[in-house]
Design a protein around this nucleic acid. Structure first.
Length: 306
RNA sequence: GGUCGAGUAGCUCAGUCGGCAGAGCACACGCCUGAAAAGCGUGGGGUCACCGGAUCGACGCCGGUCUCGACCA
């Protein structure tokens, strides 16, 4: 029989990677799966706080460095990669420990998601119509074709309106007919733990970590990345986006660093808000040492939820 | 010491002729199905530096005080 995967999730800088490494150090059959939208890009190491080579030698890691920074990468790509990783791990009778910071990506693994396909020509024509007629008209059209989807999104959210129309027109099926939606939480075989910090303490850890990333050479990493094309998904990564702006002279380095810290803090809050809706997550409150606090809880789970 | 300018939300600043105090950012809260470290929405916030005066009514006008800045001495 295979053991249920464990999930360690939390906002950026919460210490989830350290906790996972500490857990894996005690269990030779543990393998780590990164659930992170930006660690999939090769060459983006410092700014994504990617696990070190030493850690990756000590414990098998999955779903890191999947594509070049010039390539597009999406949830659907991630879901496929993670499924393969889980199959590999369980095939050798090992146990997966997922380290998750990207809520949507985690859902694509824990909850089987039917992600609709892509219809690039249809999307292009929809975008052209948005440019010509404005978004309200398109939202109106979605309301007649798929009232359920239209009701769930703000008419001003261009990205979602366009995508829903793309899928509805392209597939011939209502966008809302794909899957139960993200607001349903069925029981799953994954045992999920969330690391939760008081916000001021996490904010301090974030600013410390951003400054440390700069000291470790994040600017040089970004500069070298900038030698080649960077996909629109990769270039929006925190730290990279702002330093790219600095490199073309738009802002000073100090301003860029301050912006990175603020935006990373906001990102951490968004992560918290995403995860805290999920009733299946057990929360571990931390205000000092993540490993010391969380490891006993995870260790107990490791023993009992086999 | 003198002259001029500034003082309004946590920050940067609008505020017309005296008539219910505004924006951006920050912050809080919600949403999220092939961009998710992205995107969208909602909300709470004020001794208008202080004291006094004229006025039905003052952030605004008058007098004074304080603080900051520039210039002059």
């Amino acid at each position: 029989m295979t053991s249920n995967p464990l999930v360690i999730l939390g906002p950026t800088a919460s210490g989830k990677s350290d906790v996972a490494m500490a857990l894996a150090a005690r269990h030779p059959d543990a393998e780590i799966v990164a659930v992170d939208a930006m660690q999939v890009y090769r060459g983006m190491d410092i700014g994504t706080a990617k696990p070190s080579q030493a850690d990756r030698l000590a414990v098998a890691h999955h779903c890191l460095d999947l594509v070049d920074a010039g390539e597009e990468f999406t949830v659907a790509d991630y879901a496929r990669a993670a499924e393969a990783a889980l199959a590999t791990i369980e095939g050798r009778d090992h146990r997966a420990v997922l380290v998750a910071g990207t809520g949507l990506y985690l859902r694509s693994v824990t909850d089987p998601m039917e992600v609709p396909g892509r219809w690039p020509e249809i999307r292009r024509s929809i975008e052209a119509r948005v440019a010509a007629n404005g978004l309200p008209m398109l939202h109106q059209e979605l309301r007649t074709l798929d009232p359920v989807a239209a009701a769930k999104m703000e008419p001003t959210n261009e990205r979602r309106v366009v995508r829903a129309l793309e899928v509805t027109l392209g597939s011939g099926r209502a966008f809302s007919s794909f899957g139960p939606g993200l607001d349903t939480y069925a029981p799953v075989r994954f045992t999920q733990f969330g690391l939760r910090w008081p916000r001021p303490l996490l904010a301090k850890r974030i600013s410390d970590r951003v400054r440390r990333m700069i000291e470790l050479g994040l600017l040089a990493e970004v500069a070298s990345l900038a030698q080649h094309p960077i996909s629109r998904t990769a270039r929006q990564a925190l730290g990279y986006k702002e330093l790219l702006e600095h490199l073309v002279g738009e802002v000073s380095l100090d301003q860029a660093i301050e912006t990175i810290i603020t935006r990373t803090r906001q990102f951490a809050v968004r992560q918290e808000r995403w995860f805290r809706r999920d009733p299946r997550i057990r929360w571990i409150d931390i205000d000092d040492d993540p490993v010391a606090t969380a490891l006993p809880v995870l260790e107990a789970a490791w023993q009992t939820s086999n």
